[in-house]
Amino acid sequence: MPSAPLFRFGVIADPQYADLAPNLTLNRYPAKSLGKLREAMEEFNRHDLAFVVTLGDIIDREWKSFDAILPVYEASRHRKHFLLGNHDFAVAPTHLGTVPARVGMSSAYYDFSLSGYRFIALDGNEISVFAPPEGDSRRQEAKDLMKALEIAGALNGQRWNGAIGDTQYDWLAAKLKEAKAAGEKVIVMNHYPIFPENGHNALNSDRLLALLAEHDHVVAYLNGHNHAGNFGVSDGTYFVNFKGMVDTEDTSAYAIVSVCEDRLEISGFGRETSRTLALR
């Protein structure tokens, strides 16, 4: 008989709210996300969840969009965790430095432990052409990464992608070792995918993938950003790209993940795929 879950948590990717007309080319309906998010909160409230995480792109653009969407999260009876995405920085330059604080984050990257699991939330926007303030050297660093990827013929040297810097990379490496020493399994979360190869992958996806491959206790990597969704397995780690909530006029996408001793059970709602991922 399958073991009962140790705990469950809710996942939302890319609500990307703004009071804007639909983008019919991309099939995105940013104004509809308030209603979709309300429905997701109602569904989550019917379950006993440890937390609900939003994997970035809370808004599509404009600072005032936070004023409309963040109150919808207040209906949740569960603990809330946020990650930030590229669209969360599509705000006036004066607001760039305070985006994490606006959504209640004391740091743009962080970790927490729960029932033998370590969750590591990354800030994939750290090196990018949109999140650092104008004139910051990290913008040039992002351009250099993009150029190198373009020369190498890679798909992901795009201005909508970002990377983590050396300090955050070292922090991640230390947290992975710390979790190993504590006997914890690890789930890494980021806005940006790193596997399979895709035009939405982080600018330094190869470096991150190589680091995770060194650690057999990393069971899963969860992300958004690529609204179509994606899935892959590399070196025993599952890479799950959740679908974008903002896409389509009348369907939503979100999930509940049940963490069990021997497996992760992903229950998809709307367009999200349900999966059973056996743990080694």
Rank of each mutant, 00 (worst) to 15 (best):
28 R>V: 03
157 G>R: 01
83 L>S: 01
109 Y>P: 00
92 A>W: 11
44 F>T: 05
102 R>E: 07
220 A>S: 15
263 R>Y: 06
154 A>N: 09
247 D>N: 08
265 E>C: 04
279 L>H: 08
33 S>P: 07
145 L>W: 13
244 G>L: 04
229 G>W: 05
26 L>R: 07
189 M>P: 02
15 P>F: 08
128 S>F: 03
243 K>R: 15
191 H>A: 02
182 A>Y: 12
59 I>P: 07
269 F>G: 03
218 V>Y: 07
74 E>D: 14
84 L>I: 13
162 G>V: 13
63 W>K: 11
277 L>H: 13
252 S>K: 03
173 A>V: 00
185 K>N: 03
8 R>T: 08
259 V>E: 02
106 S>M: 05
108 A>W: 01
255 A>E: 14
139 R>L: 09
186 V>M: 06
62 E>M: 02
27 N>T: 11
280 R>E: 15
77 R>A: 10
148 A>S: 14
168 Q>K: 09
83 L>K: 01
172 L>Q: 00
241 N>W: 10
211 L>W: 10
142 A>N: 12
195 F>P: 00
108 A>I: 02
226 N>D: 07
30 P>Y: 09
192 Y>T: 05
153 G>V: 03
190 N>R: 05
158 Q>V: 08
261 E>R: 12
37 L>N: 01
139 R>P: 06
123 D>F: 00
193 P>I: 09
177 K>L: 10
23 N>V: 03
57 D>K: 09
111 D>L: 00
19 D>I: 10
151 I>M: 08
116 G>R: 02
57 D>V: 14
249 E>R: 15
70 L>V: 06
243 K>F: 15
61 R>G: 03
224 G>Q: 11
193 P>W: 07
278 A>D: 03
94 T>N: 06
155 L>Y: 10
175 K>L: 00
229 G>N: 08
26 L>H: 09
220 A>P: 10
78 H>W: 05
161 N>P: 08
179 A>G: 14
175 K>C: 00
15 P>K: 05
278 A>W: 03
276 T>V: 15
73 Y>S: 01
275 R>G: 13
268 G>F: 05
274 S>H: 10
273 T>H: 12
70 L>N: 04
99 V>I: 15
257 V>I: 13
235 D>S: 14
173 A>G: 04
64 K>C: 09
202 A>D: 04
118 R>V: 10
246 V>I: 09
166 D>A: 11
193 P>N: 11
18 A>R: 01
165 G>S: 08
153 G>N: 02
1 M>N: 03
230 N>G: 15
116 G>S: 02
58 I>S: 04
207 R>H: 07
70 L>M: 11
258 S>M: 14
239 F>I: 07
20 L>W: 11
202 A>W: 04
